[in-house]
């Protein structure tokens, strides 16, 4: 890995220069009490005072709705056109946990039956994480094997050293390319111990106890107890940086149409409903169990990793105040 520094007051110039190359820059912006990744016209629109963005950067690779293809219908003769994804994007300000999530997401979508759309978007995107100086009660990255110091899945990782400069870890070739494009902004440096600058997120549960324990409670009442409060919306899945389920929908007029994929959630009753009316996951507790099992057991079986990065978004968004931390602790204690 290469190491650089960037003066914090050079950040606006960095973004302007990136934009001049035709790339889109997304950075955290405030709306109401929440922060979202968005484009910006001027640097002062960027919000640096946030623990976590409300939505994860997964939508850059896996948009909430995207075209699979379009077609034209010429009297029953169909001509199909694939989307061409050319737009180059730089995402700034995601947290290191999101990098871990993107690494998982890419692994899931690209390793077996690789997904072209996600691959193209990934090739076109550079992810810059901004290491956490603060955390809240819902952060639990250190309980799931990550930390604010993590660089996995980021192309560049920025740490505000508190001395007017960012310490920049160049994690990937793509990150290197971006840094190399603006040599006058970045200065070389050696590896620095950044941990002192970072948030100290407490460990809430022991993953090594939890992972083997979860399948053993599959048939218990624990899921019903935990999920009676669940109202069956998809908010947790949609804000989750690793949730990847989707639906496929067609839209058309008589001459042309589009096949789209859009986010879906295993929390919805319709998700598994058969045309016959039979529903394999009949009640909400089955759906809640599936969500937790997927993150902490099925992913481990299929991909040798859990698929929760401890970003805490599902907790912050839950209309009923459900907390995965609490639920995992209750599994650990069961």
């Amino acid at each position: 890995m290469n190491y650089k520094t960037l003066n914090t007051n050079k950040l606006p110039e960095f973004f302007e220069k990136i934009k001049k190359t035709g790339k889109t820059v997304l950075a955290p912006r405030k709306k109401g009490n929440k922060t979202f990744f968005a484009t910006f016209d001027s640097f002062d629109q960027i919000n640096f005072d946030y623990v976590q963005t409300a939505l994860s950067p997964k939508s850059v690779l896996f948009p909430r709705v995207e075209e699979l293809f379009t077609y034209k219908n010429d009297d029953g003769t169909y001509s199909v056109k694939e989307p061409e994804l050319k737009n180059e994007v730089v995402v700034f300000g995601m947290r290191p946990c999101d990098g871990v999530a993107l690494d998982y997401l890419c692994d899931f979508f690209l390793n077996e039956n690789p997904d072209k759309l996600l691959q193209d978007r990934k090739n076109n995107t550079t992810f810059i994480s901004l290491a956490c100086k603060s955390f809240d009660n819902d952060c639990f990255c250190t309980s799931v094997g990550s930390s604010p110091a993590e660089t996995l899945g980021s192309d560049l990782c920025f740490t505000d050293m508190g001395n007017g400069s960012y310490y920049v870890e160049v994690v990937t070739d793509k990150g290197q390319k971006l840094v190399d494009a603006f040599p006058d902004l970045f200065a070389d440096t050696k590896e620095i111990n950044k941990v002192e600058q970072l948030a100290q997120v407490p460990v809430r549960f022991e993953l090594k106890n939890l992972v083997p324990k979860i399948p053993t409670v599959f048939e218990t009442n624990i899921w019903l107890d935990q999920s009676l409060a669940c109202i069956g919306c998809g908010a947790c899945a949609y804000v989750c940086p690793t949730c990847s389920c989707f639906d496929v929908q067609d839209e058309c007029n008589p001459k042309a149409g589009t096949r789209l994929r859009c986010w879906d959630s295993c929390a919805f009753g319709q998700f598994t409903l058969h045309a016959s009316g039979h529903n394999p996951r009949e009640v909400q507790s089955n759906r809640w169990r599936n969500r937790v099992m997927h993150k902490f057991n099925y992913s481990v079986q299929n991909m040798n990793t859990i698929s929760c990065v401890g970003c805490g978004r599902c907790i912050r968004v839950c209309p009923a105040g459900m907390s995965i931390i609490e639920h995992l602790i209750s599994v650990e204690e069961a």
Binding site: R64, I231, G232, C233, G234, Y238, P319
Partner: peptide
């Protein structure tokens, strides 16, 4: 809107077993 349907799920008056959108 991301169509998570939290508005529908949180609303006591949205009690249809099959919503129009479904």
């Amino acid at each position: 809107c991301i169509k998570c349907y939290a508005c529908r799920a949180a609303c006591p008056m949205c009690y249809c077993t099959k919503c129009t959108v479904d």
